[in-house]
Each structure stands twice: as C-alpha cells, then as structure tokens.
C-alpha cells in the first residue's frame, strides 16, 4: 500500500452539487506521496468542499476518489481516517469544554483500538506520553490542562494541527490553518507545517499567496468549483489568469 509509486490522492472527474449549485465540478487531481500541494482559489471556489469530499464528511455526487491506491467510494469518514488521512477545519473544530490534553487524547483514541474502553488511561502510560509529545510538537506543551475555550485563537489553530498529527498520518488536509492569525503566529504555524516529516503528504488551502507559494512544491488553483491551473509556484506566480481572477478578487 505504501509503495511510493502509489499516489497519495487521485481524484477523477469529482463533483458535488448542493441542489442547483455545483460547488465542485469535474475535478481531476493527483497528489503524489510526500508532495506539498497548495490549493488556492477565491472565496466560494469550492476548496473546502473538495476537502469534505476527500475526507468523507459528505459524499461526492460524481466521480471517484482514491487514497493511497484504495477507492474511497462507500468508505465512511472514520475508515478514511484510520487509513492515514487527517484533516483540519477552516473554523476551529475542537472540543471547547475539554482540555488540550483531552482533545489530543480523543483524537489519539480515534485511530487506535479501545474506543469503547471503560478503563481510565494510566496517568503516566504510553498514551499520555504520546499526548504530551504531540502537544510539545505543536508548541502546546505547557497548556495541557487548559480548557480549549480559554486558549487564544492562535493556540487553537496549533492544537488543531496537533489533532491532525495523531497516530501515523499519511495524508494531511489543512484548511486555512493560518486563518485569522497575527503575522507572528502565522510565521510560527508556517514553520510547523514546513517542518513536518517529508514523507507526509500535505494539501494546504491558504489564502495568502506568498505563504502558499513558499510552502508548496506544486500549486492548484480552483475557480467556481473547477480547476483553473496547476503548476509550480513559479508558473503560478507568472500566470496571468491567476493574477486576474485570484489576486483580482482578493482586492488590494
């Protein structure tokens, strides 16, 4: 399965309609293992919807998606996660009433056996060590016992990333992880993303063109639910269509 000639993601003619609205249509996308791919596009271009289709939040109405060589049609979201797919959400999707440690613990349990266990985890057991290690990895080591609702927005985004790194992730979908952060927090989070292990496949939705082009090997631009162009950061930077549509709609 993990032979590197298998693509991390392969989307063929994928589409999703919401009633009359085609949020995503005719998307063909191939992401190789270990690739860093940025996904760009104006508001409403269909980027988050595409993530939802890949992660199984809701099914595609057209086309097929495969993850690490396995066709995902009919595969529920939880199974995709156990196959190594992880995602973050554009709006923080954490358990606000629970602590940082509890959030990471829940995420860890999701991809490990014993989800129905009625035994308390050992305070210094292997699992708790993993939780601590994860928290430290995303710079939240000192905040384990803090309630998520009491954290700053930037810390919540860091935790959100930590939640996606539990277990043995293979493919990471990050939906605007730096949204709403201060420039300093942005730089910090970007460094975390750039520093992820090279074997990990990352698809990154990011509105900031500079950040996206710096973090990615390849860039895909969507517009009105369709793929507009795909290329290296250099090619995208030079592309007139992208400048017109993407940068134009961003305004100055």
């Amino acid at each position: 399965m993990s032979a590197s000639d298998v693509n991390a993601l392969e989307l063929v003619d994928v589409g999703r309609r919401f009633g009359a609205l085609a949020a995503v249509s005719n998307v063909d996308l191939t992401v190789a293992q270990g690739e860093r791919r940025a996904l760009l596009g104006a508001n409403g271009a269909g980027k988050s919807t595409l993530f939802n289709l890949i992660a199984g939040d809701f099914p595609a109405t057209d086309g097929s998606i495969s993850l690490l060589g396995r066709d995902l049609s009919g595969v529920p979201a939880r199974e995709r996660t156990r196959m190594g797919l992880r995602r973050t959400y554009q709006n923080s999707s954490l358990f606000a009433q629970l602590t940082v440690a509890d959030n990471l613990f829940i995420a860890l349990r999701g991809v490990r056996p014993g989800r129905f266990s009625l035994r308390r985890p050992h305070r210094r057991g292997d699992e708790m060590q993993r939780v601590v290690a994860l928290a430290e990895r995303v710079g939240m080591g000192g905040w384990l016992d803090h309630r998520v609702a009491d954290l700053s927005h930037g810390q919540q985004r860091q935790l959100e990333l930590g939640m996606a790194l539990v277990g043995e992730p293979q493919v990471l979908l990050l939906d605007e992880p730096a949204a709403g952060l201060s420039p300093a927090e942005r730089t910090h989070l970007l460094a975390l993303i750039v520093g992820l292990p090279p074997s990990l496949t990352v698809v990154l939705i990011e509105h900031d063109l500079d950040i996206a082009l710096r973090a990615a090997d390849r860039v895909t631009v969507m517009h009105n639910g369709r793929l507009l162009v795909e290329g290296t950061p250099g090619e995208i930077r030079a592309n007139q269509q992208v400048r017109d549509i993407y940068l134009g709609s961003q305004g100055n």
Binding site: P76, I106, G110
Partner: peptide, 12 residues
C-alpha cells in the same frame, strides 16, 4: 459536542 468532527477523527 461535535459528532461530525468525531467521525473524521475515526469514531463510529
């Protein structure tokens, strides 16, 4: 608190 998130975290 968030059943949808739990699904994408791997829970049934």
């Amino acid at each position: 608190d968030n059943p949808r998130r739990m699904r994408t975290l791997g829970f049934d």
